[in-house]
Design a protein around this nucleic acid. Structure first.
Lengths: 208, 208
DNA sequence: CGATGCTCTCGACAGGCTGTCGAGGGCGTC
DNA sequence: GACGCCCTCGACAGCCTGTCGAGAGCATCG
């Protein structure tokens, strides 16, 4: 919850890289077990400091996860913003959008998987995710609506409902795949399968 | 984890309705907060017994949730089995299948929502859910494949991948709706939206 | 009718984890 | 060389969990 006051660009051993060390340690540990099974002792040890030093930087381990989530969604948004906006979205364009999610979530597997676990108990996490998800839903809705106005997207009944469903599917399907749950899609084929389904949901065919 | 040895059909105050009382108490409490924030003290108090009496019946609060999940999925499977098997699935048939999930999950909102939280930490829960989900995915895949053989289901590239995605979408979309997350679909419109998307994913049009 | 056994209940204990506090330790500055 | 700031530490209190042994009620059997 709390953030450190500041830090000077330290000569050697100190500073805000302690904070970074904590965040990295949590991401490492999350690769081995869920957040609930990670104690702050372990995090502190992995980051090379004492337990109470941890509390100087973060109010809880959940706050660290929130930081991790912030980094991840910021990366998603940055890469989405860098994507070209075509006059008429093609399958390739949709695919490249979806690839952003698949890639970034995959690069932060531990965070993606932990989200579902921690969302129930951490309001800040839930709200932050809601905000970002809402943004992506708006984007999707706008794109679909534009396609409808062009006379395409014939398969869509309710653009907003479709967008919500497709985006929530993304979240869960990618997380399940990364966690290796059964049944789920192997990580290598998630992107193509999602693209097929998104295009079908919008245009009625996987390759419009 | 453990189950009580037995119970006689008690005259008045005793028996296995203690066990039922525990399960019901957990479901009640889950309506107000996530499992992680519920202590066994509270459960025992709500069920009218002492904390260690709780441990006579269940090994942990997670074991109670597993019991709750078992009940719920059993109900789903029972109602799915009662559904007629048509020669050619219509939109109405798909809708009535989806209605089973929407209805039963909705009737056990607390359980549906808690699943995502607890799955990360409770292997038995994860495995049980995987088993059931796999069954529904198989059912979906078989149905789609049959449609493909009939020359319908033209929109489907990979029947299994489509089935996995549609079923995982169901899970998450219904849970989000029941939890009142934002963005999500209002509970009243989930069923129609899901039906539209399932039909579109399979046939290329929401109303085949 | 009393002994035995089973089911079930309880209070108490030990251990682990969390979050907080006050006491400093180094280091730059005046 | 005294002060102040950033940071670190050990210790404490509190909560929750899981386990144990000691029984209470009740049925069955000798």
């Amino acid at each position: 919850m709390s953030t450190p006051q500041r830090a000077r660009r330290a000569p050697r051993p100190t500073g805000e890289d302690r904070q970074r060390a904590i965040v990295d340690a949590v991401e490492d540990l999350l690769r081995t077990r869920p957040l609930a099974e990670i104690s702050i002792d372990e995090v502190a040890a992995a980051a090379g400091l004492s337990r109470s030093a941890f509390y100087f930087y973060f109010g809880s381990k959940q706050a660290v996860l929130l930081e991790l989530l912030d980094r991840m969604v910021a990366e998603v948004d940055a890469r989405l913003a860098a994507l070209p906006l075509p006059d008429e979205p093609s399958r390739d364009w949709w695919r490249s959008c979806l690839a952003v999610f698949v890639d970034v979530f995959g690069a932060h597997r531990a965070v993606s998987v932990s989200l579902a676990e921690a969302r129930a108990t951490v309001p800040e996490l839930r709200e932050e995710w809601s905000r970002r998800l809402a943004g992506w839903v708006d984007l999707t809705t706008a794109t679909i609506t534009a396609e409808q106005r062009r006379g395409r997207a014939g398969a869509v009944v309710d653009a907003r409902a479709t967008s919500v469903l497709l985006n929530t599917m993304n979240e869960r399907a990618i997380a399940a795949s990364l966690a290796g749950e059964e049944p789920s899609l192997p990580p290598g084929s998630v992107l193509d399968a999602l693209t097929d389904l998104w295009c079908t949901a919008v245009y009625g065919t996987p390759d419009p």
